[in-house]
């Protein structure tokens, strides 16, 4: 965390090149395919997602990147008729194993959605929701501490400390999204999935969230789906390019953007497809 604190605003940041292989990958996907009814939305995706770094999924809309993201904490289960084939492992445990409990899995792999979706409750209750349902706090004081720490980690505490008991829906869009991040952090996940977290936000709020993602990297494995190649370049260490439901190319972010192996990746990056 302290390493990133001194960094300049990410808007002015250039592409950094830490070696993604510096961190071991605990999260691995092996030949994952997804079907919605008869239609196949994802074809044989295999990828390793390194720990404590940011991986970005890019590609044109409908390319399957969000679908794949939702496979990682099994949110596809909630969609009628969705079927997943293949294997996703966390610490060598298959997430699609019969014996695995989805509730437990989602406590370990949190998710932040495209549109900020705070519950119609107070700011405090929003963050306390996860710890409460999972029974993480020993006492009221404990719960308060979790909430405050989470809000601090999400960089929201200073802005809301005087109105913790006012509705979360009264915050601005960027604040709401950070509240949702705090809400996910409060459960203490190892992985945080972010599904285009900035697509509904203005550039300033986006910059703040990107900075936050960079800070969170030291403690969490972050996987972000984004529409914006600039965003992927700014925040991620590893990038995967999806097209028409297939994983076309993956690798260190810098390589993908400067020296893609596949023509399709290059076409996308240079704006010829998209």
């Amino acid at each position: 965390m302290s390493a990133t604190e001194t960094q300049a605003s990410p808007v002015h940041q250039t592409v950094r090149t830490p070696d993604p292989n510096a961190h071991p990958a605990r999260l691995k996907a092996d030949a994952v395919s997804v079907f919605y009814g008869e239609k196949q939305a994802l074809f044989d995706v295999s990828i390793d997602l390194p720990e404590k770094s940011v991986s970005a999924f890019i590609g044109p809309s409908g390319c399957g990147k969000s679908t794949f993201l939702r496979c990682i904490n099994r949110m596809n289960d909630t969609i009628e008729g969705a079927r997943v084939a293949g294997k996703i492992t966390l610490d060598d445990h298959n997430l699609y194993d019969q014996s695995l409990d989805v509730v437990e899995l989602r406590a370990r792999i949190g998710m932040v959605f495209q549109k900020p979706n705070p519950f119609p409750k107070s700011i405090f209750e929003n963050v306390a929701y996860g710890p409460k349902i999972h029974g993480l706090a020993r006492s009221k004081a404990d719960l308060e501490e979790i909430v405050i720490t989470s809000l601090q980690k999400a960089g929201l505490f200073e802005e809301v400390k005087d109105r913790l008991h006012q509705p979360g829906t009264g915050l601005s869009g960027g604040q709401q999204q950070r509240l949702c991040i705090a809400r996910a952090i409060a459960v203490g996940p190892e992985v945080i999935l972010m599904d285009e977290p900035c697509s509904a936000l203005d550039p300033i709020a986006t910059a703040i969230i990107e900075e936050l993602i960079d800070e969170l990297r030291s403690n969490y494995t972050i996987i972000i789906v984004t529409h914006s190649m600039q965003q992927a370049a700014r925040v991620s260490q590893k990038t995967a390019f999806f097209h028409l439901g297939k994983l076309i190319e993956e690798g260190p972010t810098e390589e993908i953007f400067t020296n893609p192996r596949e023509k399709r990746t290059q076409d996308y990056i240079t704006g010829r497809i998209g």
């Binding site: 904490n73 989805v102 979706n117 929701y129």
Partner: peptide
Amino acid sequence: VPQSLRDGSLGLGATQSETIRRVILPA
């Protein structure tokens, strides 16, 4: 009640009944 609230709660690891009782019904 928007689907996004449901997803938000389920994404945090709430069971369906917890989501209904604590998020959807209050909303």
